[in-house]
Design a protein around this nucleic acid. Structure first.
Lengths: 202, 202
DNA sequence: GTCTATAGCCAGATAGAC
DNA sequence: GTCTATCTGGCTATAGAC
C-alpha cells in the first residue's frame, strides 16, 4: 500500500463522496433521469468542479458501476474463503446480497440500451477486468454446483450466470416493497428462492 | 359492433400504424431514447401531424402499452378457453408467449422509474382496466395451480404474479440472443423453465 | 480547485400557411 | 389534417474570474 500525500487523500475522499452520490441517484432515478446538476447538488460542490474530477456524465456512471463491482468482488472473495459452504450456497449468498442491496436503494441502475454509456463501459479496462473476475468466480461455482447435482447440468453455465446477474436489476423486489405488505427479509427469501430453485435439477 | 364512417376508419388505420411504429421503437430503444421525430419518420408523417393524434410522447407510449395488454388479453382468453390444460400449463403458455414476443423485438420497454410516464399510465382508465382484467385471469390460475400442487402454496399469489409479469422485461433472453450461441426456441425453453420451476412446490 | 455565468445542443411541442 | 419552420426549456459541458 503506497502512502498517499495529503492532497491525494483529500482528492480520493471527495471523489468517493461524489461516486456515492451518483450511486444513490442512479439507484433512485436511473441514468437518463439523473442530471449532473443533481449530482453536484447532492455532493455539495459546483457542477464545474465536478467536471474537474470526471470528464462526462457517462464517466460518473461508469465510476459508480466500478464501485459496485468492487463491492461485489469483495463479497465474492469473502464467500470463496468460506470452507463450510457448497458452491450452490455461495451463489445463493451472492444473490441474496444483491437483492438486499437493491431493497436498500443502493443498486445503481444503468440501461443496457443507452449506447453512449455502453460504449464508455466497454472502453473501461477497470470495469471489464472486474466484471471478468466476478464472472469467473461465479462461473466456477456454477460448474461445481452442476457437478454436485445442485444445479441442472443440462443448463448452459452462461444461462445460469445471466440469470443470477439479472436478479440484481429485477423489478419484482421493488414492486413487492412498494406494495407494503411484506418485510424486506420475506421479499429477499421469496425472490432468491424462486430464482435459485428454478436452476435446480428436477 | 358499430359501423364506422369512412373518415373514422382511416383515422383508426393511421393511428394503428403509428402505435405499431411506437411499439417497435419502444422495443428497440426504450422510452427515454425513443424520440418523437423517429416515430414520425417511421410512421411516415410529419411530427406536427403526429401531435394531432396523440397529445404527448407519454400518450404515444401509453397507447403502445394498451395495445400490448390487448394482445395479452386475447392470448389469455384463448388459453382460458382451452379445456385440455391445467392452470399451470396456461400460465406457462403465457410466459412462453411473452418471451417469444420479446425475442421477436415486439415487446415495448417502458421504465417503471420514469415518473411522467407512470403518471400517464396510472391516469389511463383503459390501461388500468386491461391490466386488472389480465391480472385477474392470471391470479385465478395461480391460486388453482397452488391448490393443484403445481405451485408452492406458501408463496403469496402476488409474488407469483409479479414474477410472471417480470419475465416480459427480463434482460436474460436479449443477452443470450446477443451471444448468438443459441436458438430462440432454446432461449425460450430455458428462461421459461427456470422461471416456472422456481415457482413449483419443493 | 472552486465558483458564477453561459454557450451549445437537442428534443418536445406549437404556429400558421396550405 | 398535413406540412415546414420555429419556439422553448432543460440538459451537458465549458469559459473565465477569483
Amino acid at each position: 500500500m503506497v502512502r498517499l500525500s495529503f492532497r491525494e487523500q483529500t482528492l480520493r475522499v471527495r471523489e468517493e463522496a461524489i461516486v456515492a452520490s451518483v450511486n444513490r441517484l442512479l439507484a433512485d432515478k436511473g441514468f437518463d433521469l439523473m442530471t449532473v446538476d443533481e449530482v453536484a447538488a447532492d455532493a455539495g460542490i459546483a457542477k464545474a468542479s465536478l467536471y474537474r474530477h470526471f470528464p462526462s456524465k457517462e464517466a460518473l456512471a461508469a465510476a459508480a458501476m466500478v464501485r459496485l463491482l468492487e463491492r461485489t468482488l469483495a463479497l465474492v472473495e469473502q464467500q470463496a474463503a468460506r470452507s463450510d459452504a457448497s458452491a450452490f450456497e455461495r451463489l445463493a449468498a451472492v444473490v441474496r446480497w444483491a437483492l438486499k442491496l437493491q431493497l436498500a436503494g443502493e443498486m445503481p441502475a444503468v440501461p443496457s440500451q443507452n449506447s453512449s454509456l455502453r460504449t464508455e463501459l466497454l472502453a473501461s479496462r477497470v470495469y471489464l477486468d472486474l466484471l471478468m473476475e466476478v464472472s469467473e468466480h461465479l462461473g466456477g461455482w456454477i460448474v461445481q454446483a452442476q457437478a454436485a447435482g445442485d444445479i441442472d447440468p443440462q443448463l448452459p453455465p452462461e444461462v445460469v450466470l445471466y440469470t443470477v446477474f439479472a436478479r440484481a436489476c429485477d423489478p419484482v423486489p421493488a414492486y413487492l416493497k412498494a406494495g407494503g405488505a411484506f418485510t424486506d427479509a420475506q421479499i429477499v427469501d421469496w425472490v432468491a428462492s424462486t430464482c435459485l430453485n428454478g436452476l435446480r435439477r428436477r
